[in-house]
Design a protein around this nucleic acid. Structure first.
Lengths: 273, 273
DNA sequence: TTGCTCCTCACGTCACGTGAGGTGGC
DNA sequence: TTGCTCCTCACGTCACGTGAGGTGGC
């Protein structure tokens, strides 16, 4: 009862272009039920129309082909729905990011410079509980959140051991290649037993220029720009990782406007003299 | 006063990767103010930081580089804001499309087949006022809207001349290549003077299978699938453009649920006997 | 027999990312 | 002098679109 359709007919039926159908065959997403061995002609079954319609809808939502395959191959409804919901959440987050970007755009377009007060400081060498890893730009916020959650769980065993706020080191490579070493850490005062990914180590001393960023991490480039410009124009720049101290972090408040992040820019040796 | 920065420093300052900065130089979006002729080393000015931050934000919203360039080069604030608003509207539309897609997904996932009643009909050859053009898939809805607006303006001069609802012909190529000839037309009863892009012509007779699609054009593939499957399984399929009659179209209602579109699938000669 | 449909390469698109292989500056 | 930073190709990615050049089916 299921009729055989040429690729052109199937295209008109499903609203997928012929080129797209050939591509879906090539990548094994939607293979015609029969291919003539002599001519290579593709023949689709009318029973494949619903699958094709699903594919078209998922691709219209920009779901990657690998994920479409995962949805189609899902062994049960729960798995399938999870994949779909995960994609929707990503779309939603993307929209929210765009909206936040638009909101932050106006100040930049009007040329309102973020004239941030800069101070100098010598950060001493301190013992810390730390988690390090190779992290990509896009996953950095999530990675930090998990790392601090883990550090906090470990520190709960010895609450008096913590001597500083959640902090992080970002390697130069992390900024320049958008993938590189990131270290989440908390300064220690007392003793604590490392567990999980966390290790006891030390953060070296450094002369730094410091400014405080107010608000969400999405706009922290403005503080970086102001701080880096300030340092560069005075020829004070050094090398080494950039530090951030989360004076008021996501664990402390749900109000993004209340967030406070200290950005510490490394100075060349002797810059503070 | 504006300091010179190496590409690495500028990267850390602006949060743009080194690779991205080189690319923006290659395409002429953000050129360093100085390039060492001997070594090829790029040197950026700290005064370029705000421009870089703008670029980063626009790219974060997935604005194409050509549009970012247009925004940066905008001769006045009005032009600039127009470009930005246009991009935001596209983002918004994309979101709305996704939401609509999600809504329509459930029926498909649950396998609820659209069991649409199909009837056969012989469409006679009729005189029409028509606008034709090569149209791409994505612009089709907008093109049809403009075409019908223009046809209606012309028909206003002779209101009694119209004999049918807004209709359209879609070439096979339009479905198979997602670009091809589309014709918007209205059947004529009396005389009318063609103007603008519109011409007086005729739509040929055709035996067709017909079903009525309820709701927005985004889901019309379901009617196509049901109708095309019906025709194919009975081996009735012919060639030629597919017709749509907008029984209740966007000019008639603002309620998407009220929309009614007749889809007419061409049959082979003699299929109606 | 003539178009027409379909086929398979091969390359282009977009905004970079990923190495490879090599040179100047401190 | 030794790394380190920076450089330029050349190619990969993703989901197709765009021809080019060629063959079977009605």
């Amino acid at each position: 009862m299921s009729a055989l359709l040429s690729i052109g007919e199937f295209s008109r039926l499903t609203h997928l272009s012929v080129k797209a159908l050939r591509h879906y065959d090539d990548v094994g997403l939607l293979a015609p039920i029969h291919v003539d061995p002599a001519t290579g002609y593709r023949h689709y079954a009318s029973a494949q129309v619903p699958t094709a319609q699903l594919i078209r809808r998922f691709r219209e939502m920009d779901m990657p082909i690998e994920q479409v395959r995962a949805v189609l191959d899902a062994p049960d409804l729960g798995t399938r729905d999870e994949t779909i919901v995960a994609h929707l959440q990503r779309m939603q987050q993307s929209l929210e990011r765009t909206q936040a970007t638009v909101a932050s755009l106006e100040a930049l377009l009007e040329g309102r410079a973020a004239s941030l007060p800069v101070e100098f400081r010598t950060e001493p060498r301190v013992p810390v509980l730390a988690i390090s890893g190779e992290v990509t730009w896009d996953e950095a916020l999530g990675w930090l959140g998990e790392a601090f959650t883990e550090l906090r769980a470990t520190l709960d065993a010895a609450p008096s051991a913590r001597a500083g706020v959640d902090s992080a080191l970002f390697s130069e490579e992390f900024f320049e290649a958008h993938v590189g070493e990131v270290t989440a850490y908390a300064e220690l005062d007392g003793d604590v037993r490392a567990s999980g990914r966390s290790t006891r180590t030390e953060v070296p001393a450094a002369d730094v220029a410091v400014t405080v960023h107010h608000g969400t991490a999405n706009n922290i480039d403005r503080a970086y720009g102001a701080l880096g410009t300030f340092v560069a124009e005075r020829k004070l720049g050094g090398s080494g990782p950039i530090r951030e101290h989360f004076l008021v972090g996501p664990f402390d408040t749900d109000d993004e406007d209340q967030l406070r992040t200290e950005v510490c820019w490394p100075l060349r040796p002797g810059a503070c003299n």
